[in-house]
Design a protein around this nucleic acid. Structure first.
Lengths: 224, 224
DNA sequence: CCGTAAATGTCGTCG
DNA sequence: CGACGACGTTTACGG
């Protein structure tokens, strides 16, 4: 990893064309070749960048200014003109063991599969990731009346998720063995517009409590 | 902007829980308070981060290890334990003039609005960004027969875009003054699944040529 | 390698 | 401030 602090201009040409006027910025060159140009503000997204794999060619223009030309297989280019170097450090960090995550959608789906009764008394799970030609349905259940229910699980429920569930329902309802299939849209948070769309289509919305679902797994809960 | 190269562990607790085992990494602290933890590989996304606004509290644990606790209004926390500092540089970069872009969807829509005839002879533009209760239709046109056409413009045409256009069409067709309204899905690239879904719904797909549209603006073209 | 869905998405814009 | 759509989305996961 090489880190430059430098006064520079940057031009990107590829999927779009973008230009950065002269200013002080941080330029990171990672061991895999990736190049990031960061300003002293903004979130984690660089102002401009090039992802690995790519190659860096260092040269000079006619007036002696350092020019780094970074390019990749797709002929995208990032041209950095380095006008003044304020700092330049290099370190070999070695490989990273990587991030361990918890609490994402897969986990939420797993917990809900274990506790489908939170969707209604007498409900049972038919299967998780029920395959269809257009993708897997998160949970396929049977309610107390024996009616099939397709459940779409999201961390945040938005319109896209309702559309996704709608496509599944359209398809599942063509299967005479399953039809009629009802829908449940289950999420930790459901946006008003998504709720409106869902309910307008006869899809029930359920707000999930991740802590409670996880707590239901915790043996200490069973003492009460 | 302060940049540390350090052996560290990181823990994030907030929208999810995530942990980084001990390794050498780069820690950037931006002037606005944002903190990024980068490995020596991977694209521009940090392994872990906290966006501004947030506050950083530096302290030590019982064994003298430096602990940075970064937290924000939403009670998300990022805890960085710094076991060894390999480098530590700080620079005030000043404000950034920002990025100038070209070639994004807004530009594509603008160009197509100027040249609706590329969609068909005798077509005319009724208006851009035609408002509806569920959002603006990119282009509302009239074809050679006088039929109203809603055009959705995308850089890359995927299923989401077809769903979006479908919602607009459903709504526009309830307006007796406009109905019947047909749909055109226009994009630089259209994914097969999106094309299939669109055509199944009677929506015409048009692949846009950005260079040609831009060239049509170029006076030099008019010489031929 | 293509295609789809998820993301601590982030970022602008508009109400 | 919330809702919504675009993004050089990136990234992970299956066929």
């Amino acid at each position: 990893m090489r880190i430059l602090v430098a006064r520079c201009t940057v031009e990107y040409a590829g999927r779009l064309t973008a230009r950065l006027p002269e200013a002080n910025r941080v330029i990171m060159v990672k061991a895999d070749g990736a190049v990031l140009v960061h300003a002293d503000g903004g979130s984690y997204k660089p102002l401009n960048w090039m992802s690995a794999p790519c190659s860096l060619l260092a040269s000079h223009d006619e007036s002696g200014v350092i020019v780094w030309t970074v390019s990749n297989k797709a002929a995208e280019t990032l041209e950095i003109r380095i006008l003044e170097v304020l700092a330049d450090v290099e370190h070999d960090l070695g490989p990273d063991p990587g991030l361990v995550k918890d609490g994402v959608e897969a986990h939420l789906q797993e917990l809900l599969a274990l506790h489908v009764h939170t969707l209604g008394a007498g409900w049972s799970l038919i299967r998780r990731e029920h395959p269809t030609p257009i993708g897997p349905v998160d949970l396929l259940c049977r309610d107390a009346n024996g009616t099939t229910v397709a459940v779409e699980v999201k961390r945040r429920g938005e319109i896209d998720g309702v559309e996704q569930l709608t496509r599944y329902l359209d398809l599942l309802n063509r299967d005479a063995l399953l039809a009629p299939v009802r829908g449940v849209f289950a999420a930790q948070q459901i946006r008003p517009q998504a709720r409106t769309l869902a309910e307008d289509r006869g899809i029930r919305c359920v707000v999930l409590d991740y802590e409670a679902l996880r707590g239901a797994d915790d043996p200490s809960w069973r003492l009460f």
